[in-house]
């Protein structure tokens, strides 16, 4: 049952955004609409999945002193693949996410999992861990995007759901709205959960 535990932990108990506070930059920056959050989450999950597998495979051949630069190069390679893929097939999303696709390279979630999990576990567990973490990250970004898009524009995934009389709170799709929405969400989650939140260990 260890396999199931490695998979499921990333989705809620150790959710990268809500519990571990990792990968804050893209979380706050691209979630002004639900579709952007979803796309960013999936791109990050793809890079995380591939990088975790490769790191777990080659960890025996990498000298300890240069492991971090080596991991970064592995990650950067997959980010380049994701970037070119999005630019070719989803040009509008690529344009909206813009700078934050290359910045997946320095997302501390990915380096954190490579260093903290994949470098110590076998390929199968690393893949499951990455899958769980990726789904957890995508879930958090999409949820944040849904809330901000609904409050700020009265729509979800570009489908208008609020009635005619709904007054948009434009502040929620502007930069301050990202901080406020995530702050309030963490407040709600912390008030209802017994487990204490872990402080992120990479800055």
């Amino acid at each position: 049952m260890k396999a199931w535990k490695e998979f499921i932990k990333g989705i809620w108990d150790e959710n990268p955004v809500f519990r571990m506070l990792m990968g804050m930059c893209p979380t706050l920056a691209v979630t002004n609409a639900a579709i952007n959050g979803l796309a960013m989450g999936l791109a990050t999950a793809f890079v995380l999945f591939c990088a975790n597998i490769i790191v777990a495979m080659v960890k025996r051949f990498i000298p300890n002193e240069v492991r971090i630069p080596s991991y970064i190069i592995i990650i950067a390679t997959f980010v380049t693949i994701a970037d070119l893929f999005l630019a070719a097939y989803f040009p509008e999303i690529h344009k909206v996410l813009g700078l934050f696709i290359p910045l997946i390279v320095v997302n501390c979630l990915i380096l954190g999992r490579a260093e903290g999990f994949a470098s110590k576990n076998n390929v199968a567990y690393s893949a499951l861990d990455a899958l769980g973490m990726g789904i957890g990250f995508t879930f958090a970004l999409t949820l944040l995007g849904i809330v901000r898009e609904f409050m700020g524009m009265g729509s979800i995934f570009n489908v208008s759901v609020a009635g005619q009389n709904f007054t948009e709170w434009v502040i929620f799709v502007l930069p301050p709205g990202a901080f406020l929405t995530l702050g309030i969400m963490l407040w709600i989650i912390n008030s209802f959960s017994k487990k204490k939140m872990e402080e992120s260990h990479c800055h």
């Binding site: 506070l21 502040i171 502007l174 930069p175 301050p176 709205g177 990202a178 901080f179 406020l180 995530l182 702050g183 309030i184 963490l186 407040w187 709600i188 989650i189 912390n190 008030s191 209802f192 939140m197 402080e199």
Partner: peptide
């Protein structure tokens, strides 16, 4: 500060207000 808001919560809310100021 209310229990659940301590730590990251209040920091993010403060950052939100600062961000409004920078707007």
């Amino acid at each position: 500060i209310p229990q659940g808001l301590r730590g990251a919560g209040i920091t993010l809310l403060t950052a939100g207000i600062l961000s409004i100021a920078f707007l």
